[in-house]
Every structure is written in structure tokens, then in C-alpha cells.
């Protein structure tokens, strides 16, 4: 491994982001904190798409896949935050340890 930045360096950064996001999604009690972890995981996946496209294949497909990932992340965030707001109106909390029923 050299100090010159190549594919492994970018992959290591993406791995760090992924691990932080996964631990955040596992351990958070706040539903919004959990969502932020999911966003980090999606970002790590997008970095990997673009990095492989840049360093290995040279095609544009990885960029397009990253764009689709960003689109789906935006849709997911909007719907999930709407669900969080609906849960807050019903339970008056968004603590995932307390909102354990589907109906109040």
C-alpha cells in the first residue's frame, strides 16, 4: 500500500462511512438518528459505485447507478420522515424502544 491515493484508499473511506452508518442504525433509540445511519450507508455504497467506475472500468455506468441511489435515498428519506412525524403525532415520542405497537 502506498501513500498515493488509489482505489483502496477510497474504499477504506467508504468502509468507514458504512461501519459508522451501520452502528448508528443498530444502536440509536431516536428514529431520526437511525435514519441518518441509513443515509450514511447509502452514501458509502454510492462512493463505491463511483470509485470502481473511475479506477477500474472507466465506464459511466457507476455514475448513473450513484445517481439512482441518490434518487432512491431522497424518496426514502421523505417517506420515512413522514412516518416519523405520524408516529410522533400518535405516541408523542419517537423513541424506538417505546413505540412498539402498530396501533395506539
Amino acid at each position: 500500500m502506498t501513500l498515493h491515493v488509489g482505489l483502496p484508499h477510497v474504499l477504506v473511506v467508504a468502509a468507514l462511512l458504512f461501519c459508522c452508518g451501520l452502528v448508528c442504525a443498530i444502536t440509536r433509540r431516536n428514529a431520526i438518528g437511525l435514519l441518518m445511519g441509513v443515509e450514511l450507508i447509502l452514501n458509502a455504497a454510492n462512493i463505491n459505485f463511483v470509485a470502481f467506475s473511475h479506477y477500474l472500468t472507466g465506464h459511466i455506468d457507476g455514475h448513473v447507478m450513484a445517481l439512482f441511489g441518490i434518487i432512491l435515498a431522497a424518496a426514502e428519506a421523505s417517506v420515512a420522515l413522514a412516518i416519523v412525524l405520524a408516529i410522533f403525532q400518535t405516541f408523542h415520542t419517537i423513541d424506538t424502544a417505546e413505540t412498539t405497537t402498530l396501533r395506539n
Binding site: V10, I32, L35, M36, E39, N43, N46, V50, A51, S53, H54, Y55, H63, A66, L67, I70, I71, A73, A74, A77, S78, L81, V84, L85
Partner: peptide, 25 residues
């Protein structure tokens, strides 16, 4: 890694949209 369009979309959608949405929530 020379992905200019993806970087701009990241700024617009994530920082301009998703992050503001999360802060509002």
C-alpha cells in the same frame, strides 16, 4: 474522483434537501 455531476447532485439533493428535511423533523 472526477465525478462532477454526481458531486453537484449530492450537494443539491442531500445537503439542500435531505439534510434540511432531517433538521426540520
Amino acid at each position: 474522483i472526477s465525478a462532477d455531476l454526481v458531486a453537484v447532485v449530492q450537494l443539491l439533493v442531500y445537503i439542500g434537501g435531505v439534510l434540511v428535511l432531517i433538521l426540520f423533523a
